[in-house]
Design a protein around this nucleic acid. Structure first.
Length: 226
DNA sequence: CACCAGGCAAGTA
DNA sequence: TACTTGCATGGT
């Protein structure tokens, strides 16, 4: 764990930030998706891509009638690439999706419920061995798809925590994840909502060339940091 | 026109 | 370890 500014109060600050964002946005019921498989699919397709484009890709797959692991696994690669085109990076994502499907079928018979029975951190490690699944994608699948107790860190988490001097740019993904999991209630619903709140706050108030005015994490006339 | 989006892997030094 | 680059569509 790297050094922390005001380390004794980080837990309180993280909870205060949660309360402020939660009051502002309410329950976001994040990561829409009917099934665990659909959530995993979305986690791969959303890599560096607007979610709106991902929903288009998923709808294409749904309309094609192959929104199931077995059917998508059997489907022609070029056909799948065409269906997910709106999500961008469609060639690499088709390859990554295929790698995940091979993993899912090779180890769990294509069944997300079977995969979810694995111990959390053992499963995380094996997911990371799949080409195309990095830390954020793995954790999104674990938290939102498998309902595991894992905190998801993303670019907005890093940006917001940095701007609030809770971390600096030396912190790794793992450092930030541990900071949150060590200082927040050990509850997947909290992790779920917290990540959703950070993304909404980031999208609306922390993008480049954008003022912090109105941000639930800002305070005072000069938007002093929470 | 520029810049960004719910990343990741591979290459370079 | 610490950058850099390719991947590609669609919105603002």
């Amino acid at each position: 764990m790297r050094s922390v500014v005001n380390s004794e109060s980080v837990g309180k600050r993280l909870m205060a930030a949660y309360e402020a964002m939660n009051d502002h946005f309410g329950n976001l019921s994040w990561w829409p998706g009917e099934t665990a498989f659909e959530i995993a699919l979305g986690a791969i397709l959303t890599q560096n891509t607007n979610w709106k484009n991902v929903t288009r890709a998923i709808e294409n797959i749904r309309n094609a009638g192959i929104l199931q692991s077995e059917l998508l696994y059997k489907a022609d690669k070029d056909y799948v690439a065409e269906l997910i085109r709106p999500a961008g990076f469609f060639n690499v994502k088709t390859t990554r999706l295929r790698a995940f499907l091979e993993y899912l079928h090779g180890n769990y018979g294509g069944d997300m419920d079977e995969m979810s029975k694995e111990e959390t951190w053992k499963l995380r490690k094996s997911l990371l061995s799949v080409k195309g699944i990095g830390e954020e994608t793995a954790d999104s699948i674990l938290l939102y798809g498998c309902r595991k107790k894992v905190f998801v860190v993303d670019a907005y988490t890093r940006r917001i925590f940095t701007r609030h001097n809770i971390i600096d740019n030396k912190w790794t993904y793992h450092d930030i994840q541990r900071l949150c999991m060590d200082n927040l209630p050990s509850d997947s619903e909290i992790y779920n909502q917290y990540h959703a709140l950070i993304v909404e706050t980031g999208k609306q108030y922390c993008r480049k060339k954008q003022q912090c005015t109105g941000c639930p994490l800002a305070r005072g006339e000069n938007n002093e940091l929470l």
